[in-house]
């Protein structure tokens, strides 16, 4: 149901229905901000990412099509792309994002109108913990840090040609463990 509703709201928002856009914003603000923060480890940059994602959604610079998968997955991909671009841009300018060391401390969720994902998080986290340490690390470097293949090879001390295989294997194992955890669909 949520999937269908997202699609309807998106269609209205794409036609400049501001109320529909606002409802989408309210629904995803927290998830997008939290994910952007997880990627950038910097509140200011995470805010910029949220702003960029939603402004582009509103003005049609990025457009969602249902054949691309669920709206939420698409929105999260757009968010990750922007966050990775920002991290890279700031690094180029020698501006390391400030890392807030206590970022993993859980904040209680509050409002009812937003997507909540505590259950999914626990189940994925349990699945991650079943992975070998090096598999956890390679997923962190690849997906959350967005490092290039060469940098992953350097950091993990792997031959360049084996990086892709290692990443795929780690991700496949993770997917399998998530399924064992009872599995969930984020849509």
């Amino acid at each position: 149901m949520k999937h269908t509703d997202d699609g309807t709201l998106y269609a209205l928002a794409a036609a400049k229905d501001r109320s529909a856009f606002e409802l989408l914003y309210d629904r995803y603000e927290k998830l997008i901000f939290s994910f952007a923060y997880r990627l950038t480890q910097d509140r200011e940059i995470a805010e910029e990412v949220v702003q960029d994602v939603f402004v582009k959604l509103w003005n049609g610079t990025t457009t969602y099509k249902e054949e691309k998968g669920s709206f939420s997955s698409w929105l999260l991909t757009v968010t990750r792309n922007k966050a990775i671009d920002e991290i890279r841009r700031l690094k180029r300018h020698d501006h390391e994002p400030m890392i807030e060391k206590d970022s993993l401390i859980e904040q209680p969720g509050s409002v009812e109108n937003t997507v909540e994902w505590g259950e999914q998080r626990n189940s994925i986290r349990n699945a991650v913990l079943e992975l070998k340490q090096e598999q956890q690390e390679i997923i962190e470097l690849f997906y959350f840090k967005g490092l290039s293949q060469q940098k992953i090879a350097d950091q993990c001390k792997l031959p360049l040609g084996t990086v892709k295989g290692r990443i795929r294997l780690a991700l496949k194992h993770l997917k399998g463990f998530i399924a064992q955890e009872g599995g969930f669909s984020n849509d």
């Binding site: 914003y25 309210d26 603000e29 927290k30 998830l31 901000f33 939290s34 994910f35 923060y37 997880r38 509140r43 995470a46 805010e47 949220v50 702003q51 939603f54 402004v55 998968g69 997955s73 999260l76 968010t79 990750r80 970022s103 993993l104 401390i105 859980e106 904040q107 209680p108 969720g109 509050s110 909540e116 994902w117 505590g118 999914q120 998080r121 994925i124 986290r125 991650v128 997923i139 997906y143 959350f144 795929r168 991700l171 496949k172 993770l174 997917k175 998530i178 969930f184 984020n186």
Partner: peptide
């Protein structure tokens, strides 16, 4: 597909109260 669950590993972070107005 293999990475679609990963965003949900993020902890729920309190959103700055001014963010919506900025956006």
């Amino acid at each position: 597909l293999l990475t679609e669950d990963l965003p949900y590993l993020a902890d729920e972070i309190e959103v700055p109260s001014t963010l919506k107005a900025k956006v």
